[in-house]
Nucleic acid binder design. Structure first.
Lengths: 201, 201
DNA sequence: GTCTATATAACGATAGAC
DNA sequence: GTCTATCGTTATATAGAC
């Protein structure tokens, strides 16, 4: 006999799975109930409606990625170590949950008002230590001129794009699932090298 | 009085707009009819059902991006010139139609079977001239060791990711629409530099 | 070809018994 | 809390007049 918390948790887990797989519009309440192995009415008992349930799932998903990246950027590591750690984090997180990045990015674009506020409320500013590291490296002529925003954008782009475009990548390069993950793994070393040294020898 | 072709075209244009804005699941046939300024029944008269209409729109959208990129890669330009041209192409295309990239990538992930076949049928192999350019540059030690696939993946990632994650980028960096497009424009020069030279000085 | 009207099905949500 | 049964709405799709 499941307790109240257990049922609520089962619903949340099922909703997470279905929303990530099908998106907000594509997800069916019945599908979530089936996934959770419970009655459809329970969804409305614990979460008032589809919007509320989705909002809970989305906010949880957003919190799984960005705060951890910002945590790395705020640490006391060197700039190069931070890049390595961010790259490793993205690739490990993708292994655990391949649909998470695509879900957050897409739904963010399709619920503009609602979740821009949410992201704002998380107070996600670039950590000062990271900003200073980039600015100092530029000033001391260790690095080319670049803003911290663009620096971070480059790292995140090189990590996430092959994850967001998984089917496109597999179709274009004719990769099996196994080959696709090998392709991603190659990038763990490739990305930090590219960021700092480019391709020129 | 519109001719047959004109009505069919109006429906296609409206469907393109609505599907790109709302996605397949989110798009409503009524919404498309309103956008086209015609009766809902006409959608079924010219295109049998929602799936057929969507398929037409999606395939048209896919053909707007990838063949043009592959065209650049197959040209007789130098490797560096090709990178510049691809970057320019992506950024110009995004200005014309900001929702196109996100649409193609997302729907590709959510209609797996159907459109993997389609991409396969386009016979989109990496142009031989591009492959040879990368391999020769690596062999002659102009460039670090890298496969042509990874090389292309890097360029595309640096271009497209800030476009796919538009709302996330704007929320995180607190950018107005105008500032966001300036942010993108900075990347036209930044990306080729990063690809070849990295950040190290 | 284009319209109105309607069939048919799916979905989110609620009422009410237990 | 959990279930069954059902309401009310909204979708896609079709039938049939013009």
């Amino acid at each position: 006999m499941p307790t109240e918390k257990e049922t609520e948790q089962k619903i949340f887990d099922a909703a997470q799975k279905v929303f990530q797989r099908s998106g907000f519009k594509g997800a069916r309440m019945q599908e979530i109930a089936d996934e959770a192995g419970i009655n459809k009415s329970m969804l409305h008992y614990y979460y008032r409606n589809k919007d509320t349930l989705f909002s809970t799932v989305f906010q949880s998903a957003a919190k799984k990625i960005m705060p951890r990246v910002f945590g790395i950027l705020a640490s006391e590591s060197s700039l190069r170590e931070k890049v390595v750690q961010v790259v490793e984090f993205y690739h490990n997180a993708f292994r655990e949950n391949p649909e998470l990045p695509s879900f957050v990015i897409y739904e963010m674009n399709h619920h503009p008002q609602q979740f821009k506020d949410f992201i704002g409320s998380m107070e996600m500013h670039l950590p000062e230590t990271f900003i200073e590291q980039v600015e100092e490296a530029v000033e001391s002529e260790e690095l080319r001129t670049i803003t911290p925003d663009q620096f971070l954008m480059n790292v995140v782009s090189l990590c996430m794009m092959p994850m967001l475009a998984r089917n496109m990548v597999q179709a274009l390069f004719h990769l099996t699932d196994e080959e696709y993950f090998s392709f991603l793994d190659e990038r763990r070393q490739l990305i930090p090298n590219l960021i700092f040294n480019g391709l020129a020898l």
